[in-house]
Amino acid sequence: MKFFDEARIEVMAGDGGNGAATFRREKYIPKGGPDGGDGGHGGHVFAVADRNINTLVDFRYTRMFRAERGENGGSSDCYGKGGEDILMRMPVGTVITDLETGERIADLSHDGKQVLVARGGRGGLGNLHFKSSTNRAPRKKTMGQVGERKSLYLELKVVADVGLLGLPNAGKSTFIRSVSAAKPKVADYPFTTLHPNLGVVRTDAGRSFVIADVPGLIEGAADGAGLGHRFLRHLSRTGALLHLVDIAPFDPEADPVRDAKAIVAELEKYDPELAAKPRWLIINKIDLVQPEEREARIRAFLDAYGEPDRWFAISAINGENTRPLIFALQDYLDSLPKPEYAPDPEMDLSPVGLSDEEIIAQAGDEDEAGDEDDADTEQA
């Protein structure tokens, strides 16, 4: 299945049902009075994070989500039924933005988080609300109010502990295959990875972390070269980045030091906060270097690049030195403070529109204004 990490959708909360203007008409009960019921409230639209979903593919083919309209009120004080709500299930890590205002509505950062994205309209009032000592037979009712309509942009930022960074063919997919059960495509040509892949790395009973492999970044990505910066958003939630460098490129004109520095420059150009994340240098493909030359080749690279705080020399294809690396990663991730999610604030589930009291007060003002107009007309 193709990976989709963004989508644009339309959501329409349900409109409120109309109030009824009816009168009680029963045998032996003359002038029974008003008995029109209220219309039901329109259904709301909710979004909820579901860890069992991993792409936004459902929202690429179904773009319109409409909640049910409230039923109209009826006679005999019968109130209309409220419209059914809609629950849109999305992957954990989805960010919801209002396309018209640019406002971020929600970040579905953890499983089960639920947010209200569009409120249904308030149901109209029946004429039983408008009876008074001076108006025994009101024919006034109100119409249901329109529910919210929104255009939304959905953007998925995968939730992973570690992200892989590097040029195409640096060995990122081979590395994730080596240390996890993930099986991304591996081939001897660049850009074999066209979408993010996630793998779970298990280091011990009850100890594991998630690693994300994204398509390779190349120099000029900020200007649209290669796949550009499109997939770097998936590294924003990680606790650490692994920068894989091919120490033995097939191209004799390739310069690993220059290429590695170019990747860091592109990362800083895209997002300084992302570039500031802890970044470990992983010198890969040491199996392609003769054993007697490895130490000198690695030392020459580090002297030219600048030795980072943490670096490992590995061979992803045969797993050499990958075990010490993943155990070091596990210890580092365990030392980080765990994210604490505050309880979700209580949602305001009140329907859109004026309250019943405000509508009745407004109707009273209109009636008084109408009486004054009638009196002026009679005097004229």
Results as ranks from 00 to 15, higher is better:
D161Y: 07
D161I: 07
D161G: 06
V162E: 04
V162S: 04
G163L: 05
L164S: 05
L164A: 02
L165Q: 03
L165K: 01
G166L: 00
L167G: 02
L167C: 01
P168E: 02
P168K: 03
P168H: 02
P168W: 02
N169Q: 14
G171T: 05
G171A: 05
K172I: 10
K172F: 07
T174M: 14
F175W: 08
F175T: 03
R177P: 02
R177L: 08
S178C: 15
S178Y: 11
S178D: 12
S178H: 14
S180N: 08
A181G: 15
A181K: 15
K183H: 10
K183L: 12
P184K: 07
P184A: 12
K185F: 10
K185S: 13
V186L: 11
V186W: 09
A187W: 07
D188G: 01
D188Q: 12
Y189P: 00
Y189T: 06
Y189M: 04
Y189K: 09
Y189Q: 04
P190F: 00
F191D: 08
T192I: 10
T192E: 12
T193Q: 01
T193P: 01
L194K: 14
L194S: 09
P196G: 07
P196D: 08
P196Y: 03
N197H: 14
L198I: 15
L198F: 13
G199E: 10
R202M: 10
R202E: 14
D204C: 12
A205F: 13
A205Q: 13
G206E: 12
G206F: 11
R207H: 15
R207L: 12
R207C: 11
S208D: 15
S208E: 14
V210R: 11
I211H: 06
A212M: 11
D213H: 07
V214T: 06
P215N: 04
G216I: 00
G216Q: 00
G216Y: 00
I218S: 00
I218Q: 01
I218M: 05
I218T: 06
E219M: 11
E219A: 13
G220E: 09
G220Q: 10
D223H: 13
D223L: 10
G224T: 06
A225R: 14
G228E: 09
G228H: 02
G228Q: 04
H229S: 05
R230K: 11
F231E: 01
F231L: 04
H234V: 04
L235V: 10
S236Q: 14
S236G: 03
T238K: 01
A240K: 09
L241A: 04
L241M: 08
L241Q: 02
H243C: 06
H243T: 10
H243K: 07
V245R: 02
V245N: 04
D246K: 00
I247G: 05
A248C: 12
A248R: 07
A248T: 04
A248S: 12
P249R: 10
P249F: 09
P249Q: 10
P249A: 08
F250N: 12
F250P: 01
D251A: 13
D251Q: 11
D251R: 14
P252N: 05
E253Q: 12
E253F: 13
A254D: 14
A254E: 15
P256C: 09
D259L: 13
D259I: 02
A260W: 00
A260F: 02
A262R: 06
